[in-house]
Design a protein around this nucleic acid. Structure first.
Lengths: 134, 134
DNA sequence: GCGGAAATTGACAATCGTTCTCATCCGCGC
DNA sequence: GCGCGGATGAGAACGATTGTCAATTTCCGC
């Protein structure tokens, strides 16, 4: 296998705190702001640790990550593959299933001789509320 | 209108150099590497200027930008809306048309009450050559 | 062809998100 | 309870990008 030596992940107070904080928000948040939230509610967690915990969650498929405005945002997510519809104003996010898109991506990749296709599919827009508030 | 005072874009040796250098490459490149290429071939262009030129090109729709590995990559592109199929190994890129995906994105956004939808759709994989070279 | 207002440039400092270092701490299997 | 190796945290280090500002260059009308 190409599997790494399996880092053997441990359960610590800090990691649980990060996981909980992430689960408590239903929108994408940055490592920085998550760190501040934790600090604000008394949890003493180092910034570096928040980064490491988020990276670990993303790697384990427990969180989605996306780059926006020069920083990486995270959000707790369902384990199955999916995409997002995100309000670019308030950050509200809807998870999307899109079998048709999956199929299309795989097919297009194959047509051009590409293998091991992965894809990034996200839709940004203004949610109804934010649009009304104009 | 909410239109800005229109900065009135000018044609300069540096901007042309950046545009040419970008057009000379058929894969995504970073501002940093583009700057080095220009320097290597004798063009004296400041790094900040390369950043500004690339940002201007992207804004004018003459270049596509995508974030990868903490940096922003640029590539000259056709003026019409399109997506990409990118080799994650060598960077070779294929531009894709995908009317069906456009329609899907607009429809899904509408279903959830979102307006002004924009979407990011890119496929990463290993091109035939890179896959064979294993 | 000239003059001048305004955009542009470039060298460098400043930001800012993220990663690294390393000594200390602690989860977990025995 | 003991000990190994992963985890933590404070701060330094890093690297991409942006801001600053005086000097330069473009382009407009005349």
């Amino acid at each position: 296998m190409t599997a790494q030596p399996a880092p053997a992940r441990r359960i610590t107070r800090q990691r649980e705190a990060v996981r909980d904080a992430l689960a408590a928000s239903d929108e994408f948040v940055s490592a920085q702001s998550l760190h501040q939230s934790l600090r604000a509610e008394g949890s003493s967690v180092g910034l570096a640790t928040v980064y490491r915990a988020l990276a670990a969650l993303a790697e384990d498929g427990e969180a989605d990550a996306l780059q926006s405005g020069g920083e990486v945002l995270y959000r707790a997510c369902t384990p199955s593959h999916h995409h997002h519809l995100i309000c670019r104003r308030c950050g509200r996010t809807v998870e999307l299933e899109a079998a048709a898109v999956e199929r299309w991506a795989g097919q297009v990749a194959a047509e051009h001789g590409f293998v091991e296709p992965e894809h990034v599919v996200d839709i940004f827009g203004l949610c109804a509320e934010c649009a009304a508030r104009r």
